[in-house]
Amino acid sequence: MEKPDLQLLYFTYRPKDVYPDVAIALYLLATVVLIVQIVRQKAQFWLYILPATAFAEALGYVFRELCVRKTTFTLYVLMTLFLLLPPNAMALVNYKTVGKIIEQSPARSRSFFLRSRFVNWFYFTSDILSIALQGAGGGLMTSRTNREHGKKIVLVGLAIQLFFFACFLVTSFYVWAKSSYSVAMSSSDSSPLWAKRKVLFTVVATTVLLYLRSIYRIIEFADGYGGTIYSAEWAFYAFDTLIIYLAFIVYMAVPLGSHFVRAKTMPTEGAEEAAPLQFPMEPKNY
């Protein structure tokens, strides 16, 4: 009995071998640039999530390139998971950024949903839930018998993600508009207002890009295995590969690390911690 063509079985088309190579090079470049920026800026360690995510994306395209050459079930599962899940970690960085702004600013909101602990807990939990559902559904979709169940689970995970992205954008715009919230200035900032605009622009722009990518993924999975969107290789590279890389370009062009540096301590024994970074208040009317 003739063995089935696994490439056509899983992809439903013949994927081209040049695109994964280009994606690998671009994402590895982003990994190196982000690491260099974070080290030079002495940024807080949670920002290393960004180069780790870029590296995970590169691995996803390594598995895709291997699948192009010889498709196997294991390689296809690894490719699916590494290309589906890592971008969710970028949302964690944005959640942490806004949580830090709220935590380090002089303003203290009476509303529980604008407290840093709630922002971190609420959005982190939503993202972990979304990652878990997408991972479980993506794994099930590699099985022909469980494909429909896997698709539904992934769609639920993506829908949850879209809802919380929308909530987070509302929170981000509120923090942006409220003059009582401020951001630490970097050496290149002309004013506290400019520093805040840079950081919140990065957060909002990348969140919108992640939102668009999630919409594409919902349409792809809703269209079904073998559907028009699923079978269009150009759509994957345009609405997933390119959109995610545009988000990394924003992170590299407007780095967050210079605004969230590690706390310094005095080198002498028994000395107290150096004074924390000062966050100048912005003018109230702008």
Rank of each mutant, 00 (worst) to 15 (best):
S109R: 03
I160K: 02
N146I: 01
S179T: 10
F165P: 00
I128S: 08
K284R: 15
E273H: 07
A91P: 06
S187I: 04
L28Q: 08
E282Q: 15
L277S: 14
P283M: 14
V183E: 00
K152L: 06
K3V: 09
S179M: 06
V93R: 00
L59T: 00
F122R: 11
N285T: 14
I160P: 00
F201W: 15
I219P: 01
K196C: 05
E233G: 04
A58T: 03
L92W: 12
Q161V: 08
K16N: 12
S179H: 15
R14H: 13
D240R: 06
Y237V: 01
A107S: 05
K196Y: 05
A274N: 13
E103F: 04
A159R: 09
R213D: 02
F168D: 12
Y237L: 02
V18Q: 14
L155A: 13
L59M: 01
V261T: 14
V39D: 06
D240H: 09
G257P: 09
A58N: 09
F73D: 07
P51M: 03
R64V: 00
V22A: 12
L78F: 14
Y95H: 07
W46Q: 00
I215W: 14
L200T: 12
W176L: 15
K42G: 10
F11I: 01
N94T: 08
I153T: 13
L78D: 06
L66D: 08
T74V: 13
Q37P: 08
G99P: 07
E233M: 04
F164N: 10
S105C: 12
A136I: 14
I38E: 10
G138T: 04
S190Q: 12
K196F: 09
R40F: 12
A275E: 15
A235E: 07
K264V: 12
F164K: 08
I215R: 08
Y61P: 03
T71F: 00
A232F: 03
L83Y: 03
Y225C: 02
Y286V: 11
A107L: 06
V156R: 11
A166G: 02
V204W: 09
A30L: 01
L256V: 00
R110F: 00
Y27L: 11
A91Q: 15
V183S: 01
V261P: 10
F239A: 05
F279T: 10
G257Q: 09
A205G: 10
S126N: 12
S190L: 04
